[in-house]
Simulated scan of single mutants.
Amino acid sequence: MLFIIEEHFLLKFVYFYYMLSSKKRLDRAFKNAKIIPFDDSSKFILFSDCHRGDNSFADDFANNRNIYFHALQHYYSQGFQYCEIGDGDELWENLSFQPIFEAHKNVYLLMKLFHEQERLHLIWGNHDMVYRNQEYIDKNLSTYFDPKLGEDVDLFCNVKYYEGIILKHKDTQQELFLTHGHQADSWNYTFWKISRFMVRALWKPLNVMGIADPTSPAKNYKELIKIERRTKNWITDNNNLITIVGHTHRPRFPNPGEIAYFNDGSCVHPRSITGIEIENGEISLIKWYIDTTKTGMLQIVRVLLEGPRKLMDYKTE
């Protein structure tokens, strides 16, 4: 009986520890977030969890790279700003950025165009947590070697990654908080180096054979629910602040009056990618995928999954 009581209190202690640590990390990300002013004429596309790899059998992004590239071309031509909210590069399975860049060079050169026009905003997640270090960014992302010219040329000069971004409306002062979401996942935030080692040493080879990594919340439904619950508790404690995350790979789009927890999904769904658009003061959840025409031709199409909803419908006093 005594053992059962002690176990009960231990479980409660662990629960409150995770809750408090999640709150502390999310508070810090919000406090230190980059603020981007916007208005109803502004246009943003939010993608996360691209997990761009080296184009090997373990590269989950490779299956959707044509869909992603086509979608990003569309948003570039339409004047959108691109917010990548974590895990853009797969730096757990891969030792460095170089093989990833070589595998998906066309993607990075397109992102370079966004960056040159100050339309690229980057957040680091647990799989690219090395981007917390500005020296690492400057060393690896600033330039790339062009074999035609035989010299290094600019890539993402002076680019910065953030733990959080706040989109703040110029007129209404409404705020939207963007972060990866692994702050509510204590293991993958605090012990990410251990997880990275396990992925490189064990799960990457097994992934090639079709065995999923059980440490990923996207593959562990019980852990996914816990992460969402901790994030929602933080949102509730912060006056139902619109919060947009990734990490779990599960798209979420609440109705006005519900907890304002949004998730843009991922770019590694089977044969599709999902994201969140902000345009005309409205927010939408969208999907891009490959479809066929009546004549059997393949085409990449965009479909609306949820919304659009006016951002002001979620504003609380």
Score class of each variant (00 low, 15 high):
residue 311 L to R: 05
residue 94 N to V: 07
residue 78 Q to T: 13
residue 198 M to A: 07
residue 211 I to E: 03
residue 9 F to E: 13
residue 134 Q to P: 04
residue 136 Y to E: 10
residue 73 Q to Y: 01
residue 247 H to G: 02
residue 273 I to Q: 00
residue 131 Y to L: 13
residue 140 N to H: 15
residue 298 L to M: 10
residue 279 E to G: 00
residue 64 N to A: 06
residue 18 Y to F: 14
residue 209 M to K: 13
residue 283 I to G: 03
residue 182 H to Y: 11
residue 231 T to M: 13
residue 97 F to L: 03
residue 205 P to V: 06
residue 296 G to H: 08
residue 114 F to P: 02
residue 142 S to E: 08
residue 194 I to H: 10
residue 61 F to D: 08
residue 12 K to R: 14
residue 80 F to H: 10
residue 48 S to L: 04
residue 268 V to Q: 01
residue 297 M to H: 12
residue 172 T to E: 01
residue 257 G to Y: 03
residue 316 T to Y: 11
residue 162 Y to I: 05
residue 253 F to G: 01
residue 267 C to Y: 04
residue 193 K to M: 08
residue 56 S to H: 03
residue 220 N to D: 15
residue 19 M to G: 04
residue 280 N to H: 07
residue 80 F to R: 03
residue 210 G to L: 11
residue 269 H to W: 12
residue 126 N to G: 07
residue 190 T to A: 12
residue 19 M to F: 09
residue 182 H to E: 11
residue 257 G to P: 00
residue 38 F to I: 12
residue 7 E to D: 12
residue 12 K to Q: 15
residue 188 N to T: 04
residue 297 M to T: 09
residue 69 F to Q: 12
residue 285 L to N: 00
residue 315 K to D: 01
residue 232 K to F: 01
residue 172 T to R: 00
residue 95 L to G: 09
residue 15 Y to R: 15
residue 258 E to A: 09
residue 260 A to M: 03
residue 300 I to M: 04
residue 188 N to S: 09
residue 17 Y to D: 12
residue 64 N to Y: 02
residue 71 A to V: 07
residue 149 L to N: 05
residue 293 T to C: 04
residue 230 R to N: 08
residue 132 R to Q: 15
residue 285 L to W: 02
residue 198 M to D: 00
residue 153 V to C: 07
residue 72 L to W: 06
residue 51 H to F: 11
residue 295 T to W: 03
residue 25 R to V: 07
residue 69 F to N: 14
residue 96 S to H: 10
